[in-house]
Design a protein around this nucleic acid. Structure first.
Lengths: 146, 146
DNA sequence: CTTCTTGATAAGATTCTCTGACTAATATGG
DNA sequence: CCATATTAGTCAGAGAATCTTATCAAGAAG
């Protein structure tokens, strides 16, 4: 809760939301208009060699049922595909599919654009210091490395 | 989307999520265990003299129907109350109720605690610079002052 | 081999969110 | 002063996202 004037965490929330919306808007404009926020948050966690559903769920901090539901949709839309996990027959690996790869490429430009804007607005030194601080904060806020 | 290794926005997301969860957990432990994330995001925007539903919706970036739905629940749970807006008979002001005020007080400690941890982890100078940068970024990411 | 744990899925309910349509009060332009 | 447009809010209905509980299958440990 906390209704005081913006604390650091709220400022981060606002900035993140802004970027997320710009990325989703750019994707929509590029024809990837069937991706939702929830889907993208799971999609983001898929590693280059594929990731297990359980891992995705942990990292996105949703239940595995929810993650499964979202992956179902991403799969139907052609952004990801599921395959067997060679190292464990119970598990399956969620991997980026053709269309997902293209969506990633389409979004990369926007992210770079936003970073450039931030850098210009803050000045290089200040921007770099902020990023360094954020990375260091991660040790506290994301100990599992999610 | 963007699956590159954590860009600044993602780091902000992770940090904010961490704080939000700690605050909600602390509230739950203090007996305010019926507040959801969505509700708290609307609740946070209520000003000391009350705020109109439409304003809450804009600031939380949801439709007014959604804001109304969430305020309904906050009202049923005793966190807020609705009253007339003296300056406009169409409008109503959502105000913090007794229980809401106590919840705010219960959460304030956690927010302060997190800030202290961050400050200790980064060092005063770095922490202050980060906050300054975040405030300045808000000019880009939140031009309407939400 | 049991037994325990882990990865995934299924079913059902709840919560959140939206679009579209509507009422009531206010503002604006003759 | 009236006709029209705008603004605040609600209602109804649908879709998306999320959770809890339960089940099944494969691996790990004894």
């Amino acid at each position: 809760m906390s209704r005081e004037l913006p604390n650091p965490a709220v400022l981060m929330f606002v900035a993140h939301r802004h970027v997320e919306q710009r990325v989703l808007a750019a994707l929509a404009e590029a024809g990837y208009d069937d991706i939702t926020t929830a889907q993208s948050r799971v999609f983001q966690r898929i590693g280059p060699d594929g990731t297990r559903l359980t891992t995705l769920a942990e990292q996105a901090q949703v239940t595995k049922q929810t993650a499964g539901f979202l992956v179902d949709q991403l799969e139907k839309a052609g952004y990801v595909e599921r395959g067997p996990d060679p190292s464990d027959a119970r598990a399956r690996l969620v991997r980026i599919a053709e269309r997902g790869q293209r969506a990633i490429e389409a979004s990369a430009g926007v992210v770079a654009e936003v970073d450039a804007e931030w850098r210009a607005h803050l000045g290089h030194a200040s921007y770099e210091e902020m990023v360094t601080a954020l990375e260091k904060l991660r040790e506290l806020t994301d100990p599992e490395g999610r």
